[in-house]
Amino acid sequence: MKKKDPDLLLFHAPLLRQGMTTPRAMRDVIYALLPATGAALWFFGLSAVLVIGSCIAGAVLAEVTFAKRETRGESLRDATGVLTGLLLGLTLPPGLPMWMAFLGGFVAISLGKVIWGGLGHNLFNPALLGRAFLLATFPIAMTTWVPAAGGFLDVYASNLALPFMQAQVDGVTSATPLGMMKFEQEVTPLANLVLGRTGGSLGETSGLLLLLGGIYLWLRRDLDWRIPVSILLTVVIFSAVLTLFDGERFPSPLFSLFSGGLMLGAIYMATDPVTSPVTPRGAWIFGIGVGVLVILIRVFGGLPEGVMYAILLMNAATPLIDRYTQPRVFGRGVDST
């Protein structure tokens, strides 16, 4: 008598897998951002919570609204919506009205991700797309920087502006170090830049904590080290060369490195695997391109900050970069002798 055979499964080899999964990689990035988020709370108090929270809410709402019925739960679980919202929130000024932050999150996901077919298919970084949208839509609110909050529970009145209505700016506004450099030729002390005691977006102030998160990601192998390294190196070299020409007019390399959103952009935005080249050579070209554009826009352009545009522009060039930097295939281009 034959025992009944088990129902065999046909699943293509290899059966073995290494441990990393895509959702885990996404969660790692969120963990790596926690110190910087903490710093945002420390400097800007409850306002940071409101702005970042609104972004995440907008992003998640877009995920839920546009997801196909059957995959609705999954797109939430892979945490990419939350990550996009968090990244976007960290790039916004602390005094931004909540409704704008919410709109930014919504646009980031719908325009940056959903219409492309969801995770993995978008060609532009969704968070930066959301920010670019906000900057073009509400240029004044997006460039109004308030100084760090007095107490933790203080909320900027402008945060609470009614939907579609203007924000009432309360008290004094400060300027970002880059703005002061560009328009007033005032240089902010380096220590302040490194620690984050300056005006600026929620998450970009403290270069040190951002760097820390980057190292964590690098240790976890979640990040293509070539991209941040090439961006930061290019920025340093480019600005060093400019400083040699005219030390008065052009900012110093260290100032360039720690001011504005460079750290945040180089470590967390430019390295978004979906929108950066997959080939190693491509990653170098991408990074150098971002670095050059950042300095070009900051120094010669009309805007004080150019990290966002630099990354978006290089995102646009990524398909071309990828196409022309395919790796040399084993055994091709070698002689048999």
């Binding site: 895509t22 995770l119 993995g120 293509d224 695997p273 997959v278 080939t279």
Partner: peptide
């Protein structure tokens, strides 16, 4: 679960 390719390289 199969996720979309995120082009991580």
């Amino acid at each position: 679960k199969e996720y979309p390719c995120i082009r991580c390289g």
